[in-house]
Design a protein around this nucleic acid. Structure first.
Length: 860
RNA sequence: GCGGACGUGGCGAAAUGGUAGACGCAGCAGACUUAAAAUCUGCUAUCCGAAAUGGGUGUGCGGGUUCGAGUCCCGCCGUCCGCACCA
């Protein structure tokens, strides 16, 4: 007799070994089948997988397995985004080499992933920290360098004083380092940049083609690229300052040019600096501006401040009109030209500024009601309207006036149409050890020289000191001392390493093709790319996804690839969340507020230390009641993290996978609960009981069960659609409905067939029990290799339908009738209903709406 | 401030403009059992009603379009996310 319970402990391991031995999930480059590349964002090897990984990879796995069953040659790889700061922190704290730490973490996480039975092609596993990966990355870097897409410039960079490294703009959040949280300082350093701005227009336009990306992500990238079109022009200084005779400004609103009342310069504008060198008060003001914070709260409350330089400029359209020149704290040097002209009536910042310094406020756009030049109030008008009080522009729409001003500036030579981008070039230099060495040698005679490709990879030295802060490569006694590859004289190796986002900008290419002697074979890459379905967290909506799009385009532009977009379809999944449990307490020994009263201290408790029931949450030890906080992202600080390992051990991989797919739509957050995983466990056992019932009662009556058959085929079709749309929660619901019906159905040959088919329907989600069942049912091949069941189309249509009968839009009755009944028949049936007659109560019928096979609505 | 998403039972959620609450969780009642676990059966939006194969109400709030609105439109409120002195 077969075991009455499914035992995942034994089964999981057995099937995982079978899959591995038979190499079923290894993708074949030479296959003649249609291709499908299913990719989940590869993890950073922090040491342990978390529930977010489990959810992410389960989704990808279901799709990958499903596509295999549908006859695709599937590439579903896994690897490690293995460079980065945490390894160096570990080196400093635990005195372990970053490589050793990272490789141990990879080994631990790999075996964790294997316990979940993911259908990965492990033969293509890669880690970005290994020379065979980063050496090829160096080759690509040199290609881009030679293609003119890499340059070096001295620039003010974001310096993280804690991590002691440069950060990209994208890595500065609210003026703080994205990793360390330390306030970022400005420093001048020579840095390597990638010309992502060359592709700004392209990256923006390409978003329009990414139909299978979430709108949200496309919008975020669009905003990040930040295209603004307008007029760039110059004002002539009334008194030129040495070599500076004009002030260049950019505006998206040239239509308001007659509303100008001042010109404002950034604190670090060249003219400001020139003036400040002769004016201590201005120098002090400029310093003050630079010291200003950049956090949301500070910007919200920061006052608009200015410093009158005493200079004036001439209005380009009126030689008799002089405008004062201020230095203002709200003008940014790194956007546009670092100078603006202020139009107070139609820009809120300008208005705040003008009111404060008592400058003229002139209306030049009418909202249709008021048109006089005097503008009252403290709220700028930025809406649509006609231009007024503006000489030759009067009466024009805003759009026409913009064109007219641009045309005039162009003819008269004082300005021209200009597009300005928010996007900056990508600074990729990092003063860190644990990253890809930048393959450049600095020679006093030849300048920066790329390392010859036959000398790649430039390998990181192993003997490294982490005792002192800063870049260990810089301090290494010998590593940087090399001869110039060009002239042979003594030279210095670049000691900066590449931003780790470079590593993740092309790993999907290397998965598709990984020859030893070059980064990838374009012919093989072409067969797999673009990635059919990419799945990951929305936190990568800008950084990683924009860089990867850029890198792919950059390679295409130098002829290394012949496609521009790496990810055809993108899905951003929600987080796994959990309730928090805490106690608030006050203590005079703790921190006090301004009045000397203790500030509330909150202590969080992990879920495994509490007993949760309908009355609340209680500490297991002592029974103290805890405050149940809101459901939020699992985090160490809130102690609401559930470690997947013990859960997998207790319930098996299938129950965990199934829970990850149930209930919540995949793009939304999934609240983890003990009850939820229990439910999935029970479902796995229900499946098992069905499977053994067939195995043990093969001699079922040869009877037909049409309703069950119908449901089966509707489920085959429905689940396929849902998986294809990644609507796993809906697929799960359909499977439940089928299982409920099978359980209720009397034994029959059809019932047995339904159960055999059920094994294949659930195989992508719960592959271990599906394999076990497949073997139990007498199959010798793997269910992983079985085809997705074929839908019998004729069974999808019902031959009876339920018609809703409404009176004045309110449901009064339902009636069952043959599908395809005529409108007259339906109307007659509806009117014959006793309930309808009661509801009509003799009222006169004005109209009857009949939707065939759907409803009848009687209007009175 | 700008941009976006979302708001449905005790909870997670379904619902091409056409029977709101499928499916799951939790809960309640019952069966089996010496007992428990497991399993099975039934009920479970809400109000009125003893009950009905009775009626009312109901998808954040207020309007509108429509024979018919959770779904479309307008205006609020709330929650979450992204960007942020971007000229």
């Amino acid at each position: 007799m077969t075991d009455q319970r499914f035992n995942p402990l034994a089964a999981d391991k057995r099937w995982q070994a079978r899959w591995s031995e038979s190499r079923v999930f290894e993708a074949d480059d030479a296959s003649s089948k249609p291709r499908s590349y299913v990719l989940e964002m590869f993890p950073y090897p922090s040491g342990r997988i978390h529930m977010g990984h489990v959810r992410n990879y389960t989704m990808g796995d279901v799709l990958a397995r499903f596509r295999r069953m549908q006859g695709f040659e599937v590439l579903h790889p896994m690897g490690w985004d293995a460079f980065g700061m945490p390894a160096e922190n570990a080196a400093m704290e635990k005195k372990v080499h970053p490589g050793e730490w990272t490789r141990a973490n990879i080994a631990a996480m790999r075996s964790q992933l294997k316990t979940l039975g993911f259908a990965f092609d492990w033969s293509r596993e890669l880690a970005t920290c290994e020379p065979n990966y980063y050496g090829q990355e160096q080759a690509l870097f040199i290609d881009l360098f030679e293609g003119g897409l890499v340059y070096r410039k001295e620039s003010a960079v974001n310096w993280d004083p804690v991590d002691m490294t440069v950060l990209a703009n994208e890595q500065v959040i609210d003026g703080k380092g994205w990793r360390s949280g330390a306030p970022v300082e400005k420093r001048k350093l020579s840095q390597w940049f990638l010309k992502i701005t060359d592709f700004a227009e392209d990256l923006l336009a390409g978003l329009g083609e990414l139909k299978a990306w979430p709108d949200k992500v496309r919008l975020m990238q669009e905003n990040w690229i930040g295209k603004s079109q307008g007029l760039q022009f110059h004002f002539a200084l009334a008194e030129p300052q040495d070599d500076i005779a004009t002030v260049e400004v950019f505006s998206t609103r040239p239509d308001t040019i007659f509303g100008a009342s001042f010109v404002a310069l950034a604190a670090d504008h060249p003219l400001t600096q020139k003036l400040a060198s002769q004016n201590a008060a201005l120098a002090a003001f400029a310093e003050e501006c630079k010291a200003g914070g950049t956090t949301a709260a500070e910007l919200e409350t920061m006052e608009k401040k200015g410093f009158d330089t005493g200079l004036t400029v001439t209005h380009p359209l009126d030689p008799d009109w002089q405008l004062p020149v201020y230095v203002a704290n709200f003008v940014l040097m790194d956007y546009g030209t670092g100078a603006v002209f202020g139009v107070p009536a139609h820009d809120q910042r300008d208005l705040d500024f003008a009111r404060k310094y008592d400058l003229p406020v002139k209306r030049v756009v009418s909202d249709g009601e008021e048109a006089d030049a005097l503008f009252a109030g403290d709220e700028a008008y930025t809406g649509p309207g006609k231009v007024v009080n503006s000489a030759f522009l009067d009466g024009m729409t805003i759009e026409d006036a913009q064109k007219a001003v641009i045309a005039r500036a162009d003819t008269e030579g004082w300005g021209k149409a200009q597009t300005t981008w928010r996007l900056r070039d990508w600074g990729v230099s990092r003063q860190r050890y644990w990253g890809t060495p930048i393959p450049i040698i600095h020679c006093d005679g030849c300048g920066p020289v790329p390392v010859p490709k036959d000398q790649l990879p430039v390998v990181l030295p192993e003997d490294i000191d982490f005792e002192t802060p800063g870049n260990p490569l810089e301090r290494h006694p010998t590593w940087k001392h090399v001869d110039c590859p060009k002239c042979g004289k003594a030279a210095r190796r670049e000691t900066d390493t590449l931003d780790t986002f470079v590593d993740s900008s092309w790993y999907f290419l290397r998965f598709a093709s990984q020859p030893d002697d070059r980064p990838f074979d374009p012919e093989v890459v072409k067969q797999w790319l673009p990635v059919t379905q990419y799945i990951g967290g929305v936190e990568h909506a800008i950084l990683h996804l924009l860089y990867a799009r850029f890198w792919t385009r950059a390679l295409a532009s130098i002829g290394k690839l012949d496609f521009a977009e790496p990810f055809e379809s993108l899905f951003t999944q929600g987080m796994v969340t959990h309730e928090t449990y805490s106690i608030k307490h006050f203590s005079m020994a703790g921190p006090l507020d301004d009045d000397g009263q203790p500030i509330a201290q909150i202590t969080y408790y992990p879920p495994d230390e509490i007993e949760r029931n309908k009355d609340g949450a209680f500490l297991i030890e002592g029974g103290k009641e805890l405050n149940i906080g809101r459901i939020e992202k699992m985090s160490k600080s809130k102690k609401n993290v559930i470690d997947p390992d013990p859960i997998i051990e207790q319930y098996g991989a299938d129950a965990v996978r199934f829970f990850m797919l149930s209930d919540s739509p995949p793009e939304r957050d999934l609240p983890w609960s003990e009850a939820g995983i229990e439910g999935s466990w029970r479902f796995v056992q229900r499946l098992w009981r069905l499977f053994i019932s067939v195995a043990e009662a093969a001699d079922a009556p040869a009877a037909e069960d049409k309703p069950l058959n119908r449901k089966l085929h509707q489920t085959i079709a429905g689940v396929a659609d849902d998986i294809e749309a990644l609507s796993f929660n809906k697929a799960v619901a359909k499977i439940f409905e089928l299982v409920n019906l099978i359980e209720k159905s009397a034994p029959s040959a059809d019932r047995n067939d339904a159960i055999r088919t059920l094994a294949r329907i659930v195989a992508p989600m719960v592959p271990h029990i599906a394999e076990e069942a497949w073997a139990l049912l007498g199959e010798s091949d793997l269910i992983a290799d079985a085809p997705w069941p074929k839908v019998q189309e004729s069974l999808l249509v019902e031959d009876e339908v339920t018609i809703a009968v409404q009176v004045r839009g309110k449901l009064r009755d339902t009636l069952t009738t043959a599908k395809g009944s005529s409108k007259d028949q339906l109307e007659a049936l509806a009117l014959a209903s006793e309930k309808v007659q009661r509801s009509l109560d003799g009222a006169e019928i004005k109209k009857v709406i009949v939707v065939p096979d759907r409803l009848v609505n009687i209007v009175i």
